[in-house]
């Protein structure tokens, strides 16, 4: 299998604090790869570096054959992303949000762009709501819209940072169905992070467990269970990362989000 993401000795420091600590991994074309780790492990920071939003302190990166440090726009054209926190314009309609994205990604021809938007809105079952302002959407609808948006420009890779956090089981199930379909039918490479073990296990080909900025174990769910001698991924995860609470380092926004997610459950 050809690698579409390659990361070697990646490190990111924030004023002396090491958020990502010398990690190396690669993701094959068409693979579904999951980062699993407690809060503050460095998952979002890693995604931000891979997607050109942050500069690494050191390390080598290749995304779809391009270097994110020098070939920004080629890398950006290669992936779609669903951020951990919502990133839609609430004052625009669903359609306008996707149109904005399409134009920014160079879909200049109007008819082709609109066809593509229609196709993706139908895919996430939001076509009949296309002219509603996004502020009227539920959390689950926003997430689906963000997935549709991330796919408008036919990316090779889809990054999903905790795409199901805070959503009800029905919506979560739907979202994973879309992702599986995209992966199977179009060989889309998916890089995701999640808190939900059973979801990681069900959908991903390989899992990397991250803790304190380091990758502590990597392999298929079976590998990880075998390696730790446990029969569930959850037990394997706890054995690898310990069972201490991990919210001390969370940023204010992150903390609030966790809080909200906790109360929703």
């Amino acid at each position: 299998m050809e690698n579409i993401i390659e990361v070697k000795n990646l490190t990111k420091k924030f004023n002396g604090f090491t958020a990502v600590d010398n990690i190396s991994f690669s993701v094959g074309k068409g693979e579904v790869f999951a980062f699993l780790g407690p809060n503050g492990a460095g998952k979002t920071t890693t995604i931000k570096i891979l997607t050109t939003l942050l500069h690494p302190t050191s390390g080598e990166l290749h995304i779809n054959g391009y270097n994110p440090l020098h070939e920004h726009n080629k890398v950006r054209q290669s992936f779609g992303i669903v951020f951990q926190d919502p990133s839609l314009d609430d004052e625009l309609t669903a359609f306008e949000n996707l149109e904005f994205h399409g134009v920014l990604y160079g879909l200049k021809e109007k008819k082709a762009r609109r066809d593509r938007i229609e196709e993706m809105l139908k895919f996430v079952e939001l076509w009949d709501r296309k002219d509603e302002l996004v502020k009227k959407f539920s959390g689950g609808m926003k997430r689906r819209l963000e997935i549709a948006r991330g796919l408008i420009h036919l990316p090779e890779i889809l990054f999903l940072d905790e795409p199901t956090l805070g959503l009800d089981p029905q919506t979560r199930n739907h979202i994973w169905t879309y992702i599986e379909k995209l992966n199977k039918e179009r060989q889309l490479t998916v890089f995701l992070t999640t808190h939900y073990m059973e979801e990681a296990e069900k959908i991903s080909h390989r899992i990397a467990i991250m803790d304190h900025g380091k990758i502590v174990a990597m392999g298929t769910a079976e590998d990880l269970k075998k390696q730790t001698g446990k029969d569930s991924l959850e037990d394997a995860f706890l054995k690898l990362t310990g069972d201490g609470l991990r919210d001390e380092n969370a940023s204010a926004a992150e903390g609030m989000r966790q809080h909200r997610a906790m109360w929703r459950r």
Binding site: L53, N73, H101
Partner: peptide, 14 residues
């Protein structure tokens, strides 16, 4: 704060 800035900054536009 509402996250939309990330969507524009991650697009292939200078």
């Amino acid at each position: 704060q509402f996250g939309f800035l990330k969507e524009t900054l991650v697009a292939p536009v200078s």
